[in-house]
Amino acid sequence: MDALKSAGRALIRSPSLAKQSWGGGGRHRKLPENWTDTRETLLEGMLFSLKYLGMTLVEQPKGEELSAAAIKRIVATAKASGKKLQKVTLKVSPRGIILTDNLTNQLIENVSIYRISYCTADKMHDKVFAYIAQSQHNQSLECHAFLCTKRKMAQAVTLTVAQAFKVAFEFWQVSKEEKEKRDKASQEGGDVLGARQDCTPPLKSLVATGNLLDLEETAKAPLSTVSANTTNMDEVPRPQALSGSSVVWELDDGLDEAFSRLAQSRTNPQVLDTGLTAQDMHYAQCLSPVDWDKPDSSGTEQDDLFSF
């Protein structure tokens, strides 16, 4: 819950932080000083300027060897085509990944977070970031790969997607708890209302004896509580940590079903599988986004697919 609360507080303090972009060759504004600060901008989305290598189908939802083989196929196909790589912007948030063309600003792909089953910074092609997700059109699994400016960037994108998945799962947990509370309150309110109706004398007997209905007592009954809980029953509950912020979080049926399955089948359902080692994760978390744009010590960066 700490990640969720800190993310909400950060967004309320400075929503404009989320509009910064990394990996864009110096076009961005001043960047936060450390990885923790940038992680807090996830709610509205972190932007990464990358190059799209392509996509291939895979048979399993996750796995280092599986993704490595898929990336190898994608890279080989991209090299064989001889075409310049498409420059894209990857927007990562707890909602998922939005992929747009840098030149036309046209939407290429919009992947809900619950469809993503794996992401990684490839070991062999260490400047490549990739994720595996279920197609929104059918049940097939797709591996999408992107060329980053350097290994640090690939690791940073991988960690960002993993963190977005974690925050999304926490949102789901909060929403589920809130819905259970509202359902319980609604049920209790309905029981109270039913009890009051059972003990209320029939209207005919009131008229016969000349008694008047006590409207004041009726007004004191917990009807307002019942209506408050039943009027918006169809509205999706939102985490309290975000009250007053500009973010509107809505959970669709697909996300609810997917996270429910994860909660039942996995020990740590909030953790998205990645190909990063503990050492890689520690190294990337210690980086400032400013470091992502620094040239690798191995030599001059080449803006070309064939540089790796």
Rank of each mutant, 00 (worst) to 15 (best):
S224A: 03
N138T: 15
L43K: 15
D273C: 08
A130T: 09
C148Y: 04
I132V: 10
V226A: 12
W292M: 04
G254D: 13
S117C: 04
T104A: 07
A185W: 10
G190M: 02
Q60I: 10
F129E: 15
K91G: 07
E188Y: 05
S140R: 06
E301S: 02
D273T: 08
D280R: 15
G26I: 09
K176S: 15
V192W: 01
Q139Y: 11
T77M: 14
H137E: 12
G54F: 05
L262R: 08
A195Q: 01
A76H: 12
M46G: 04
W22N: 04
G63T: 14
E44I: 12
R261D: 08
P239D: 07
D183N: 15
T218R: 10
L42F: 12
T300Y: 01
S265R: 12
P295V: 06
F146K: 03
G63P: 01
S243L: 03
P202D: 03
E33G: 06
L85G: 13
A69D: 13
K294S: 10
N229V: 10
S117R: 11
L213T: 05
L242W: 01
A3E: 12
T149N: 03
Q136D: 07
T231C: 08
S140V: 15
T160G: 15
P289N: 04
T230H: 01
L212M: 10
D293A: 15
L141M: 06
K51D: 00
L11F: 08
A76M: 07
A164Q: 01
A162Y: 04
D183Y: 14
V192F: 10
R151S: 12
L206F: 15
T267L: 03
P222L: 09
N268E: 00
I74H: 12
D2S: 08
A228Y: 06
I116D: 07
I74K: 15
E177Q: 01
V192E: 02
E44G: 11
V207P: 05
L141F: 04
Y283D: 04
G299A: 03
Q279N: 00
A278W: 10
A228P: 06
E188H: 05
P222C: 11
H28V: 14
T100P: 15
D304Q: 10
H28P: 12
Q106W: 01
T36S: 02
D303E: 08
I113P: 00
L47D: 13
A185F: 01
M233K: 07
E170H: 03
P295I: 13
R27L: 14
V207N: 05
G96V: 12
I113Q: 02
E65K: 08
N229P: 02
L47Y: 09
K5S: 00
R13K: 12
P61G: 07
A10Y: 14
A80S: 08
K181A: 14
Q163F: 14
D273H: 11
S81I: 08
I12Q: 07
K30W: 14
A221D: 03
S297F: 11
V247N: 00
D303Y: 12
N102S: 12
P237K: 06
E217H: 02
W249V: 03
K179G: 01
S140Y: 15
T36A: 04
S245D: 11
